[in-house]
C-alpha cells in the first residue's frame, strides 16, 4: 500500500504500534474497550483495504457470532437462564461472555490484517537483520526463491504439456501424479542451483567478515514524535489497566468497571495510524487543489 501514510514510517515505529495494539486487544475484556478496539481497528482496516475489507469484516462478524453462540453450550455458569439445551442451562451471562471473547478474536484478526499490509517482509528483515543475521538472510533467500521456483514450475509444466503430459481436466489421481512429477523435477533443479548460489556467495566473501545490513529506512523526526505519542498513550492506558479501569467479569455475574477517561486515551493510541493516514490524504488533496 503506497497510499498509506503510516507505512512510510520506520519499521520500528510500525512494529511497536502493532505490538501494543495487539497486546491491549488480547488483554482487555471490558465491553467498552472491546467496542473501541473493534471500531478503531476496523476503521484502519477499511482505510487500508478499501472495498475488499468489508467482505473480510463480514466473515469475521460471522465468526464472532459463532463463537458467541457456542460458548454457552460449554460454559454453563451464570444466573439468567435463557433456556435449557440438552438439559444444560444456556445462560445470558455465558452468551455475553461469548460475544466478548469473539470480539477479542476479531480485534486480533483485524490488527493482524493491518499488520500484514504494513509490515512487509523487507521491513521485518530490516528490523531483525542485526539481531539474527543468518536467520534473516535465510528468510530473504526463501522469499527470493519462491517466485523463482514458481516460474520454473510453470516452465516444467509447459514442457510437460508439450510432450502430452499434464492438462487441466484430469482425474484426481492423475493430477496428483503430475504435480508430484513437477515437484521432484523442481527439487533436482533447485538443489543443483543452490550449490552454484552458495559457491557464488562464498567467492564474494560470505562469512569473511561481519555482514552489515542495508538500511533504507531512517528514523526521522516524525518517527520519534509518533513513538513518543504512542508510548505516552500506552503508559496512561497501562496505568488504567493496573488500577482496574479495564476490568470486567462476565460469569457468574455481569459486571464492568465504570468508563473513565482512560477509554479516550486508549482510542487515541489505536487511532494513531488512522490520524496519519487521514492527514496524508488531506495534505495530498490540498496540494492537488493548489495546482
Amino acid at each position: 500500500m503506497h497510499s498509506d501514510g503510516f507505512s512510510k514510517y520506520h519499521p520500528l515505529t510500525n512494529f511497536l504500534f502493532f505490538l501494543g495494539a495487539i497486546l491491549f486487544g488480547v488483554l482487555f475484556q471490558h465491553p467498552a474497550y472491546l467496542l473501541a478496539g473493534m471500531l478503531c481497528a476496523g476503521i484502519y482496516y477499511v482505510l487500508l483495504q478499501g472495498r475488499k475489507a468489508l467482505k473480510a469484516i463480514a466473515g469475521m462478524l460471522l465468526l464472532l457470532l459463532i463463537v458467541a453462540l457456542i460458548n454457552p453450550i460449554f460454559n454453563t455458569q451464570g444466573s439468567h437462564i435463557l433456556f435449557r439445551l440438552f438439559g444444560r442451562p444456556y445462560t445470558l451471562e455465558a452468551l455475553v461472555y461469548g460475544f466478548a471473547v469473539g470480539s477479542i478474536l476479531v480485534i486480533t484478526l483485524l490488527w493482524f490484517g493491518c499488520y500484514n499490509q504494513i509490515m512487509t517482509e523487507d521491513k521485518f528483515t530490516v528490523l531483525f537483520g542485526n539481531l539474527a543475521p543468518s536467520l534473516s538472510l535465510l528468510l530473504v533467500m526463501v522469499f527470493r526463491l519462491i517466485p523463482n521456483l514458481l516460474s520454473r514450475a510453470r516452465q516444467i509444466n509447459d514442457a510437460r504439456r508439450a510432450i502430452g503430459k499434464g492438462g487441466d481436466d484430469l482425474p484426481l489421481k492423475e493430477k496428483i501424479t503430475q504435480g508430484m512429477a513437477v515437484l521432484t523435477a523442481l527439487t533436482g533443479w533447485a538443489l543443483e542451483g543452490s550449490i552454484v548460489t552458495a559457491d557464488s556467495m562464498r567467492s564474494r566473501g560470505y562469512g569473511a567478515a561481519k555482514r552489515t545490513c542495508f538500511q533504507i529506512y531512517q528514523m526521522g523526526f516524525g518517527d520519534y514524535l509518533v513513538i513518543l505519542a504512542a508510548v505516552l498513550a500506552a503508559i496512561v492506558t497501562i496505568i488504567g489497566a493496573v488500577t482496574g479501569a479495564t476490568d470486567a467479569t462476565y460469569t457468574p455475574l455481569l459486571w464492568s468497571a465504570p468508563v473513565s477517561f482512560f477509554l479516550p486515551v486508549y482510542c487515541i493510541y489505536l487511532l494513531i495510524p488512522t490520524f496519519i493516514h487521514v492527514k496524508e490524504v488531506l495534505q495530498c488533496r490540498i496540494f492537488i487543489s493548489r495546482i
Binding site: 543468518s134 535465510l138 526463491l145 543452490s194 550449490i195 552458495a198 559457491d199 562464498r202
Partner: peptide, 11 residues
C-alpha cells in the same frame, strides 16, 4: 552456517 548449508535449507 556455511553458505552451502544455508542455501540448502533455504531451498
Amino acid at each position: 552456517p556455511s553458505a552451502r548449508v544455508l542455501v540448502l535449507i533455504a531451498v
